[in-house]
Each structure stands twice: as structure tokens, then as C-alpha cells.
Nucleic acid binder design. Sequence first.
DNA 1: CACAAATGGTTGCGCGCGCAACTTTTACGC
DNA 2: GCGTAAAAGTTGCGCGCGCAACCATTTGTG
Lengths: 153, 153
Amino acid sequence: MIARAASELGLELAAFVPYRLNRLAVGVSNHLSDIYRERFGLDVPAWRVMATVGSQHGCTAQYIAQSTRMHKTRVSRAIAHLEKRELIERAPSTADRREREVRLTKAGRRMYAELVPLVLERERDLLACMPREQLRGLLAGMEALETFLGLQD
Amino acid sequence: MIARAASELGLELAAFVPYRLNRLAVGVSNHLSDIYRERFGLDVPAWRVMATVGSQHGCTAQYIAQSTRMHKTRVSRAIAHLEKRELIERAPSTADRREREVRLTKAGRRMYAELVPLVLERERDLLACMPREQLRGLLAGMEALETFLGLQD
DNA sequence: CACAAATGGTTGCGCGCGCAACTTTTACGC
DNA sequence: GCGTAAAAGTTGCGCGCGCAACCATTTGTG
């Protein structure tokens, strides 16, 4: 414990991993949201709902909330907003009448089909800033943290 | 580009790096904020101001804003809040009377001295979930992304 | 079968954020 | 030096978020 005495005298925020991680997440999110915000008028919750419903047709709000780790009220409002824009539609579930099955409309599917390739291309562009081996290292480290924090799945 | 055709059919949010990064940042932030929130009654902006002022005595709000990448209004309100709690104090700068030099009070220095070791210990605990070499890989990858996005320093 | 507990989902409320506008002071251009 | 632009910092405003409370429905338990 003597070894870390020096680093405790002053905490350097710029070298502090939690801070760097947050700054990085914000930076990456901004880099990405250029696409779905300016180009398609989606904010973060709406984008996540679109992304989830696009691959899990007929899922419930509850499923979206768990899958995206967003608060259920945030999901509820994002869905309401997207429904008003006629990008998704809801039908009461036959099995459980508390639930409502969420689906993309025709316009929603069109947007999804246009949006996903652009977003994935952005991700590739971003990750192309480092060599393959380094990327593997980054992902492995992220996975370790996710496991430690009970986030992965 | 043929190789990625399959992955474009459906975007899996759980494997999407921007989303994972955001989730990770939130998780790490929560893991950390247990300390400064419940124990010291600080929220994220207040904690960042404390951390910055603690190592840069007499700095300005502008400096804090750049250093933490927070909006200047967010900084302004965090400072006002901390001043009300008498953890920091402000004195008009002699050189430039628009500025106000921000310093920790005696109580602020006491809290800082108590807080920083706990926070750094939390960081170490977190990073101890992976072997040393993997941590090096994670940090290298993060640095590459920071450079690419023009974030570092 | 009835009643309590739990679940899916929505809404009212308070709060904190970012934007824009503003005040005060300093720097720049001629 | 005077006037305009720019910078430090604060404040009013609208908005989106999370919390808690709520409604409707379903599940569990005696």
C-alpha cells in the first residue's frame, strides 16, 4: 500500500477510469447520434426502441426496458412518441391483456432498414481507429468489467 | 463487405459497442457514486468539482468546465451548491475581475482527503477484476478511441 | 373461488440539464 | 482611446428523466 501513496496525494480526473469511461461513452454516443438524430429525428431512447423492436418484432415494453436497461417510464414515453410518428404500432396481446405487442409499421421498417447499416458502418469506422489485436483487448476488458458489475447478457 | 452482410440483417444491441460502452459507464458510475453520494451527499457534478478543485486550488469555473467537459451552467450550479454547503469558497480574481478563484474550505479539504482514497480504492477494486495484461489492453483501446474522437486530455 | 400480491404499463410531479439571453469585464482593431 | 467583439459567469425557460402512485389484469394461495 506504500506504492500508491503518491497517487493518493492528488486524484487526476483525466486519468481516472470511471471518468474516462463516462467521457468516452458520451463522445461515442455523440459521434453516433449525428446519424439517428439529425438524419432521422430520433433521440437516444427512440433509437434504442427502434433497434430493439426491429430485431424482436412483437416484443413488449417490458422486454425493451430490460433489454436496453432503460427505465420503464422512459420506454413508455419513447414508444408513445414513436407511435405518434407512426413508426411503430401497438396491438393488445391476446395472451395477456396487460401487455401490448410492439411492431414496426411499414414506414418504421423502411427507416430501420436504412438506419441500421449506417449505424453499423459508424461503429466499424470508430473501431477501425485501432489494430485488430488492440480491439480484441478492449472488448475483452469491457467484458471483464461487465461481468464484474453484473451487466452482461 | 460481403462478410458483414449477415450482421446487418439485425442489429444486436447487446453486442453494439456504443451501447455497451454507455451501459458500462453508467454501471461504473453507479458503482462509484455509492461512495460520494450516500457517504458524502455529493452528486456527479459536485463530485467532479471537488475532484478538480482539490488538485487545482484557485482554479476558475471555466477551467473546471473544460477539465470535466461539463457545461458551464452545470458547473456554475454545482459550485453554488458546494458554496452553500461551505465546502468551497470563491474570491474575485485580482488579475481578471470577471473570474472568481475557487478553493476548498477547511471542511472541503477534510472531505477531499477522506474521499479521494476511498474513490481510488474503488477504482482499484474495479480494475482488479481482470489480469494486469488485460487491463493494459483495455486502457490502450480506450486511449485509441479517445484520440480518434479528439477527447484525450 | 375469493382475495391478496405481483406484473405491464401510464401519468403527475419535482428536479436537473442545456440553450439562449443577459451582465460585467477584458481584449482587439483602427 | 473609443467602440465592438469576446470571454467569465449567472439566470429564466422548456424539456426529459426517475420516482412514486396509480389502473388494469393476472397469478398465487388458502
